[in-house]
Design a protein around this nucleic acid. Structure first.
Lengths: 207, 207
DNA sequence: TGTCCTACATACCGTTTGGTATGTATAATA
DNA sequence: TATTATACATACCAAACGGTATGTAGGACA
């Protein structure tokens, strides 16, 4: 018996922490951070207040952890930032857009982008929140910018475009599209916007 | 003495209502609707709870009124929707973008677009909120779409573009740009994004 | 002038909130 | 085996919340 390896620990702090993070993410995603109820999070996680305040000093710290350990990874994975860039960047970006447009869930359309939700709600209210959220956006934007710059050296992207500026605009357009579609509760509008963005990307190719 | 015209009425219901709406707008703009405190709003408006609940049945109704009677007009005015369209639409839109970029306030960069804030926070939570917010977005999008269509008949806009789709994308990009800039607290990023959007609009002109 | 409805002001209420104090069982360590 | 720190569970708290009940002053109208 590999008891020491497989043993059912009646106390598993990291598992408890994960349950808290996941439950908090769900609640925050649905209601926003400020309106997220700790009691609801605890009920969903199946633990008590003692566990929460053992792992996190306060509600804000739980929120920061949700950004750094849940939302950040989710976003970077969904937008292909974690995978190594290959081929010409315009086509690669277009493919990511198509993939996202094809795989949209109702939940995603209704609730929008969790990172953008937190950015809009918390940026003016909490400096630490703003920094955590913004750091993640910067990673995304920088990744797009570097892809475009690589395309410029490879000759697949026009040399007269300002790659960092375009990258920021691409991310802004994506988030704006999700936001508008969230208000309209329309996956069709979201897909349409992503298509327009895709056609804009096409204009970045050399003439 | 034009007493009946200029008289200081100790009771002025519509003025009281306006004070409530303006104070509520400020508080909601800063903290979001859910976190907006009625007591704070009342203090800012200089009235009491009795006045509030005389004019509005509950907090939600106050929020709806803020959208319909404050935010809506503000947004449509700022983006030139209320002024009659003239000249070629691409140039007109670019001019609005330049004007907005030039006239940005710190407050606007930090707090973002009040309509978009409410859209992101309340759309999944309150159907009536969502409808009020979305109706205003639709007015804006439709206005842009009609401008573009007019340009198409005038020959200043390419005929192969889908005007309503482009219009939605333009609004999405603008809101996304404000949102990203709000997170980054950067007027420069906002201006940069609006410039990229302006260059995109340029591509709508006939070859 | 008397009446009556509007337009508030004041005081209060139950609920929910984030947070804390305290007790206790587990499990590594000495 | 005894000790001790970790990892919780339970019970509780003050403050803030949205909302209500009740009282009252202003002003149009009769």
């Amino acid at each position: 018996m590999a008891k020491t390896l497989v043993k059912r620990r009646s106390r598993d702090p990291s598992a408890t922490r994960d349950k808290l993070l996941n439950a908090a993410f769900e609640e925050i995603y649905r209601r926003g951070f400020q309106a997220a109820s700790l009691d609801t999070i605890l009920a969903k996680a199946g633990v008590t207040k003692g566990a929460l305040y053992h792992h996190f000093p306060d509600k804000a710290a739980l929120g920061y952890a949700v950004v750094d350990e849940v939302v950040k990874g989710l976003l970077l994975k969904r937008w292909g930032v974690l995978e190594p860039a290959t081929g010409d960047p315009v086509s690669a970006l277009q493919q990511v857009l198509r993939g996202r447009a094809a795989g949209l869930t109702t939940r995603e359309v209704e609730l929008g982008c969790p990172l953008n939700n937190l950015a809009q709600e918390m940026s003016p209210l909490d400096r630490q929140f703003r920094k955590a959220v913004n750091a993640t956006f910067d990673i995304w934007i920088d990744a797009v910018a570097r892809d475009l710059e690589r395309g410029q050296t490879d000759g697949t992207v026009r040399r007269d475009v300002d790659a960092p500026k375009i990258a920021a605009f691409v991310v802004a357009s994506i988030e704006g599209s999700f936001g508008l579609a969230k208000g309209a509760q329309s996956a069709a509008m979201l897909r349409s916007n992503l298509e327009v963005l895709s056609s804009f990307l096409e204009s970045l190719r050399p003439a």
